[in-house]
Amino acid sequence: MKKLLFGFISIFFIASACRANNNPCGHVNLEWFESHAGMPESAEIIYKKKIGTLCETVLMIQGDPVSFYCSKDFFIQGQMFKDKKSLTNETFKSIEPLILAKRKNYVESEVKRTEQRKLFFKKNIKELDSMVSFQFGAKNYNRVIYFITDPNCSHCKKMLKVLGELSIKKGFLVKTVIAPILGEKSLNLGYRAVCKNFGYNEYKNLKDDGNPYICEKAVLLFKREKEFFKRADLNFVPFIIDGKGKWVVEGGNPELLKKKLASD
């Protein structure tokens, strides 16, 4: 699954500037959520309804409906029950056609964006190659793939292990691009890996030792990467690209990677 730059906890209390009124849904809009909790760019409010003093709100987030119950001072994410029945599920059923239509639009949009990213990397593969920090795999390789990874990403670490095994078994070379996009801890780990010229084994066992690391080489590299990935419309990891630009694998899906490798 993709490691996304978004998270929320089940109960998130916020200080709101909204004044109390008889309509608990009056102040609830996407800006209200974004200013206090942050939302992915795909988030969209598709339903609001007053339930007592709360506003039941359904957002489509990455193709799935997510329910929130909002007051003027806080919101709760989850399900609401009454008389042993899920009011949330009843709401979802009542707007099922809308949910299905929104999900279809999201899937089609993501397919298009994936294709656009694939074409971008195929066109700019030489620029990506200039950002490689280390490589590993078969000595006598018959193909090259690029692996974009964050040093603090659990899915990336799992995929790194899979690539280490598959590259020897299938005879390919993995060129690794370290992209610390998940926050300060990622950035410090990235500085350490790049500044100390870590290879596969060192990177595989990379852990935060509490010491800050920074060097000009890493600062310049990560600045270039940030601009490059913005052009590529890439804000998640892991991400794998075939060296000839034939295909990409978005997210930590080893089975999809194996299928792509077998298809060539």
Rank of each mutant, 00 (worst) to 15 (best):
N205P: 04
N205T: 09
N205G: 04
L206A: 03
L206I: 09
K207E: 10
K207I: 12
D208T: 03
D208N: 09
D208V: 06
D208H: 07
D209N: 09
D209C: 04
D209G: 05
D209M: 06
G210W: 08
G210L: 07
G210Y: 08
N211T: 11
P212S: 02
P212W: 08
P212N: 05
P212Y: 06
Y213V: 03
Y213E: 01
I214R: 01
C215I: 01
C215Q: 00
C215K: 00
C215A: 01
C215S: 01
C215N: 01
E216R: 10
K217M: 05
K217P: 04
A218G: 00
A218L: 02
A218T: 01
A218P: 02
V219P: 00
V219F: 03
L220I: 09
L220V: 07
L220T: 08
L220F: 09
L221W: 00
L221Y: 00
F222P: 10
F222K: 07
F222R: 06
K223E: 12
K223L: 10
K223T: 11
K223H: 11
R224N: 14
R224D: 10
E225M: 04
K226H: 08
K226S: 07
K226D: 05
F228A: 08
F228R: 11
F228M: 12
F228I: 12
F229L: 13
F229V: 12
F229S: 10
K230R: 12
K230F: 13
R231G: 11
R231A: 13
R231Q: 13
A232F: 12
A232M: 11
D233Y: 15
D233M: 14
D233H: 14
D233V: 14
L234V: 15
N235C: 14
N235D: 15
N235I: 14
